[in-house]
Amino acid sequence: MSSSADAFRPSEAFLRRRRLIDLGMRAVLFLSAALSVFVTAAIVYVLVSESWGFFTEVSLWTFLTDTQWTPVFAQPRYGILPLLTATLWAAGIAIAIAIPFGTVLAVYLSEYAPAAVRETVKPMLELFGAIPTVVYGYFALLFLTPLFQTFIPGLTGFNLLVPGIVLGIMILPYIVSISEDAMRAVPASLREGAFALGMTRLQTTFKVIIPGAFSGITAAYLLGMSRAVGETMVLAIAAGQNPNLTADPREGAATITSYIVQMSLGDLPHGSLAYQTIFAAGLALFLLTLFFNIVGFFLRRRFREAY
């Protein structure tokens, strides 16, 4: 390796070059890591600067309280409420399914299942995340909706119920994985103590494991909610594209994400108000998911530090 083979010490020039490469690579690696900060900044910059024009035309108050969203009509109305309620309906149905199923499954995998079962099931659950979301959309629209229509009266071809259920299954593995991690992080000594008192596994789960892993499990719910709120294709395909302020999940309604998809499919002139609406809607979505992500992040960090 040394450029001067006759001496034990490599030459000064060689050492200088090595030091330069070492420092240079350190800088390259740092810049790659710092890219994430730049990306976050760019997201905030784009969303804020593009929706700035929108909010000079439409007041924030109108945006938040008007009950109609008709930006491309002759008489445009710009109320985010119909999109927001549809988003929360679908995410709410998803989380209502994913929380009980996910928690029971996480408890089963963490406390009951033999190691062999756990190690087989976890990669299989990961396959849920590998399936393209557009395939879930196909399944929701063309298989599940006709099936559900046979026993749910009044279910329209586009509705919030079926995509909500599919979303629930989609976020299930995510919730299972995070809450199972949290449960397994509870020290074995606590578990053994409970067993020594004569508790069954179920009693241990409810009296020791779930209280001990509480912040981690809550984090899993919040991060799952954030996923459901931001999911796009299932809703764009199976929930319809008609903004609809409704309290009935059997009806179809456009969510924030499917509105953005719908507008992007058409030809949006850069700088027009219609172009800016998708960034305003995107900003609302970003803030909503950011809220869930940040609370989830700190709760998750807390359970990691607790043990």
Binding site: A33, L223, G230, V261, T289, L290
Partner: peptide, 24 residues
């Protein structure tokens, strides 16, 4: 800050990345 950003970016909905790409 970098760590928090990496974690946060993993949770940003994919369609927001689409808006970033469109605007930026």
């Amino acid at each position: 800050i970098i760590e928090i950003n990496v974690t946060n970016l993993a949770g940003v909905p994919s369609i927001i990345y689409g808006l970033l790409a469109l605007g930026f």
